[in-house]
Design a protein around this nucleic acid. Structure first.
Length: 493
RNA sequence: GCCGCCAUAGCUCAGUUGGUUAGAGCGCCAGAUUGUGGAUCUGGAGGUCCCCCGUUCAAGCCGGGGUGGCGGUACCA
């Protein structure tokens, strides 16, 4: 037993992945059911696609290289084709829609849920496998589809228990940002690289603040660890122009839209973006969602495939961690219009818009909001095995309980009664069934209510009182097993 | 990827200027209590001091390298 073995396999979880226990799984199930009900109320239907896709379908080959992007988990199939684990649920949807285009109703409203994988550096609240819950409308070109996505995202957040006012859905439009780029002379394909740097800088507004963004728009910025990030090299006037747009958010949506029109007096991408945002704002106000969905020109979102409106759901409540430091949950979901994505597979562009809820992150936020995961669900009734020769009778009792729809198990370990009671306690069992020789000879069983018993125990400090009073237990004829167990369970459901 | 910090029991951590057999609390197991989860008391199990190389009469402690973890930053489609 103590012989040192050198060939032991280390039991270790890969970095950035997580095991999940019963309480967390129950919370996930409850949350996803609430989201599912919301989406179905809005007329979306479920589909599921596999975890793997051909890498080219995900669009993740490195430019000019015969190798997938390092951020995706990839492997070569035995026919030498690259496969990758999906990194979101949108690219697989685009593949599915293109492949089944003729037989799908258009517009096609669908939702899907499941794990996605990213081969990136994990951090607190950032994993390499996490859950997303997406909804998309394919084949609806107008901004009314985008407005609907924003409203449904608000409904979904409320369905999982986030109160109105504790979240906000922000909407922007890529065309606004394109308009700014044109205005500061970064239009045209030759400036694509610098536009990307500008967008990344804008995306860091919440974290770095306006001054940090200004530094990144100009020469660059040195962070706390002394690392230097090169900036976009804009001159001061251009940087101010960009920052002004980000601050264009006003007291209400229609005012924000007006300000954006003022920023773009001439026809072009910016003006078109302002017009689209204005239309979204009108629809949202008319539908009564104006207090939950706001225009916010600082929203950037994913950097590649969005072509029009983009949206992001943020939690606004503040929570402190165990050291008293504020936790920022930030974005728990987002999306936008991606009119070009399905078009990668088909001759025609197919308009599409959708969003994704980050289930894992949302669940972490809710846990912080409501305190720990709800108390672990009640475990099974545990039938103690006090006497090896009579374990068959214990099994019969467990079977009787199961037949009545009551979860029950016979203790199968090798330990004595005290350890069996501890086991039942640890399983969160509401009740144990005790039948030693005394009860057996009389055709009786003793039932102990563990939850009432624990309460009674708290009031007793004396050992002999504790053993003699035997709180919260009854001895009844064996035929009454189901009835009496039900009576105990009914006290705790 | 880059920068910084850290690594001692299942967990949280002590460990003196380098000096015998490396400790505590919590947790776990058991006994006190021949049939009762709590409380109390007693006992027990549990360690490659992350790994390798070096310095030294002597390394948990000093030096170098590696690995792993944490934080910042970059990337995050």
């Amino acid at each position: 037993m103590n012989a040192r073995r050198t060939d032991l396999t280390p039991a270790r979880l890969p970095r950035g992945f997580a095991d999940r226990g019963a309480a967390e799984l129950a919370a996930t199930r409850e949350m996803t059911e609430a989201i599912r009900r919301t989406y179905e109320l809005w007329g979306f239907e479920a589909i599921e696609t596999p975890f793997f896709e051909y890498t080219d379908a995900l669009g993740k080959f490195l430019p000019d290289q015969d190798r997938p992007n390092a951020g995706v988990f990839s492997l070569k199939d035995d026919d030498e084709q690259w496969l990758s684990l999906r990194y979101d649920l949108t690219a697989p949807l685009a593949r599915f829609v293109a492949e089944n285009f003729q037989r799908l109703p258009k517009p096609y409203r669908s939702y899907r849920f499941g794990p996605v994988f990213r081969n990136e550096k994990p951090g607190p609240g950032r994993f390499r496998q996490f859950l997303q819950f997406d909804a998309d409308i394919v084949g609806a070109p107008s901004v009314s589809a985008d407005a609907e996505m924003c409203m449904m995202m608000a409904d979904a957040l409320e369905a999982v228990g986030i109160r109105r006012g504790d979240y906000v859905v922000k909407v922007n439009n890529r065309k606004i940002l394109d308009g700014v780029m044109e205005a500061i002379g970064l239009g045209g394909p030759e400036n694509a690289g610098r536009r990307l740097i500008v967008l990344r800088a804008i995306d860091k507004l919440d974290r770095l603040g306006p001054e940090g963004v200004r530094a990144l728009l100009g020469e660059g910025r040195k962070d706390e660890s002394g690392d230097f990030t090169k900036g976009a090299g804009l001159d001061a006037d251009a940087a101010v122009r960009v920052l002004d747009i980000l601050k264009a958010k006003a007291a209400d949506n229609l005012q924000t839209a007006r300000r954006l029109f003022d920023e773009f007096p001439k026809p072009g991408a910016g003006q078109e973006g302002a017009r689209e945002l204005s239309a979204v704002a009108t629809l949202i106000d008319q539908a009564g969602y104006g207090d939950r969905v706001e225009l916010d020109p600082s929203v950037v979102r994913g950097l590649e495939y969005y072509t029009g409106p983009v949206f992001e759901a943020e939690l606004t409540f503040k929570i402190e961690d165990e050291h008293g430091r504020p936790i920022q949950f930030g974005s728990v979901g987002g999306g936008g219009r991606y009119d070009g994505l399905v078009g990668r597979f088909m001759a025609d562009d197919v308009p599409a818009t959708g969003f994704s809820i980050g289930v894992s992150r949302l669940q972490a936020a809710l846990r912080a909001l409501k305190g720990a995961d709800a108390a672990a669900a009640l475990g099974p009734v545990v039938v103690l095995a006090l006497d090896r020769e009579h374990i068959g009778r214990s099994m019969a009792q467990a079977a009787t309980l199961r037949a009545a729809g009551i979860a029950a198990e016979v203790y199968l370990g090798a330990s004595g009664m005290k350890a069996q009671m501890k086991y039942a306690d640890r399983r969160h069992s509401p009740c144990v069934v005790i039948q030693g020789s005394d009860e057996r000879e009389k055709g009786e069983v003793t039932l102990k209510d563990l939850i009432e018993g624990a309460k009674a125990a708290a009031a007793i400090s004396d050992r002999s009182e504790w053993t003699e009073s035997r709180p919260a237990q009854v001895t009844v004829p064996e035929e009454r097993l189901v009835e009496e167990v039900r009576a105990i369970l009914s006290r705790h459901v």
